[in-house]
Structures are given as structure tokens and as C-alpha cells.
Amino acid sequence: MKTMMAMITTVAIAAGSSFAPTSLRAQENNAETLSAVMERGVLRIGVLGAFKPWAFRAQDGTLQGIEVDLAKRVAESLGVEAELVEVTSANRIQFLEQKRIDLIIGGMYDTASRREVVGIIEPGYWASGPSLMAREGAIESWDDVAGKPICAKQGVIYNQLIETDFGARLMAFAGNAEGKEALRSGKCVAWFYDDSSIAADLATGDWEGFEMPVDALFVNPWAAAVPIAEKDGAFGKILSGLIYGWHEDGTLIGLQEEYDLQSTAWLANMHDSFAYDRTFLAD
């Protein structure tokens, strides 16, 4: 009886929402991408190219990394082939809007303004926040950046914070490599980027004499994204379910260990809060 009531409610809500003008377009073609993917037999996933260890070119030229791994898992679940398309943080949304890719798994922060243009999938699959990499002793706190040149990457959503909140002079480069090279050759005092990525860089041993001297300003989840019309369609719901499962069954924590990343409180919390109580099966 209870399930019956729930079903009726769901149908009623669905019927009600279909009359709302905002969801009209969404209702019309909210399965377009999924059916195109199934027909094509290929899922085109936008991943970043130089984003170690989430997505990067390995020695043999193939794309590897945590996000590449996740992208392949999505394709495998759908029973189609995965086609990895290299995108940048500045063009990934345009690629999705132009239907050059079906899905973004590209280190993208979930933000209110992005939710207006793409279908952000809940829950997020990773989380990180902005921090600094600098020469040992050069920076002690966030207030130390005032008036100094700080390197960053173009297209990163929080770039303006370091100018507006801390009065630094931002120098944003097109890629991570250029930004970090600029730090190494002394063109700026620090590299302003994600703590997760900085930790990964420091772990490689290539950054002797550098450190991450400050805590992240905030923690923001990373979300996969589908065309906005399909967020609440089958494609969006499949992805939501997959990501929920990756948290619940420890896939994401496993990848964190596999790629030698420091364990984060956020992933552990997600794992705990999504854990499904199966103790009732015991007897």
C-alpha cells in the first residue's frame, strides 16, 4: 500500500511538472543523448588531457587516470564503447552544448552558474578546493599574497577570489604546465590551484623545495555533467545511480589509493553516508 501511494505521488508530481513551461523542452528530448549513444554504440566522454592523475597521457600515448577509469566504467555499464575526447576547462561546456561529447567527467566544480547551462549530476564523485603551491617559506598564510603576482590557470572558477578577497595580482595561463613552469622560473610567487592537484604534484618528487603552505579556501564537489535537458531523463538518472554506487561500494576510495593520493575526509564521509544498511539480511 505504501509503495502504491509513493508511485501515485511520483506520477502526480511528474504529470504536474510536465505542465510547467520551464520543463517543457526538457520533457521533449530528455532521452536524445542516450538513444543516440545506444544507436552509435559509442559514448563520447570529455576528459581533461593534462590533469594528472585524473586524466593524462601515459608513456604509450593513451589517456589514463581516475576520471578516464570512471568514464570507461560508464561506457561499460551502458554496454557501449568509450571514446575519450580531450577537452579543456575552458571549452568542455561548449563541447557538451555543441553535442561534440555526450558527457563531461573533467574535473569540473559543481556551481550554481554551471547548473544553469549543463545537467550537473548529483552526487559529485570527487571534491577539492583552491590552495597554493609556493617555494618553501615564501608564503605562510593567505594574507601573504596581497600585491604579489600569483600564477593560475585560465578558466578556473575561483580565480577571481584571490584578487577580490586577498588582493593578489592574478596571472592566468592557458594550461597547468605553463602556470607551474611560470612558478618554477620565478615569474610569480605561488601557483593557485586545487589542493588535490597540488598534492599530486608534490607527491611526484619533481617539486623539491616547494610546499603547500595553506589550507584550501573551501571544499567543492566535482560533478559529471550531461546536456541540461537530460539531467532528469534516463541518462542523468543512470549516471546518478552509477556515481552513488561508486561511493557506496568503495570504488572511488579504491581509486584514490590506487593513484597514491592522500585520503580525503570528503570521500570517506560520502562513503559512510551512502552506506546501505544490509544487516537485515543476516537473519
Partner: peptide, 23 residues
């Protein structure tokens, strides 16, 4: 010149469109 972070027009406006998504 935006590739070496000179804050000229292309750099400035690509900064704006990245934040506001008004490409």
C-alpha cells in the same frame, strides 16, 4: 599575448566568459 598571461582584451573577456558562461 593571452598565452603568457598579458591581461589584454582576449585574456580579460575569456576570464569573464569563464566565470559567467556568457561566451
Amino acid at each position: 599575448a593571452y598565452v603568457i598571461a598579458v591581461p589584454e582584451m582576449t585574456y580579460a573577456l575569456s576570464g569573464v566568459w569563464n566565470d559567467r558562461l556568457n561566451v
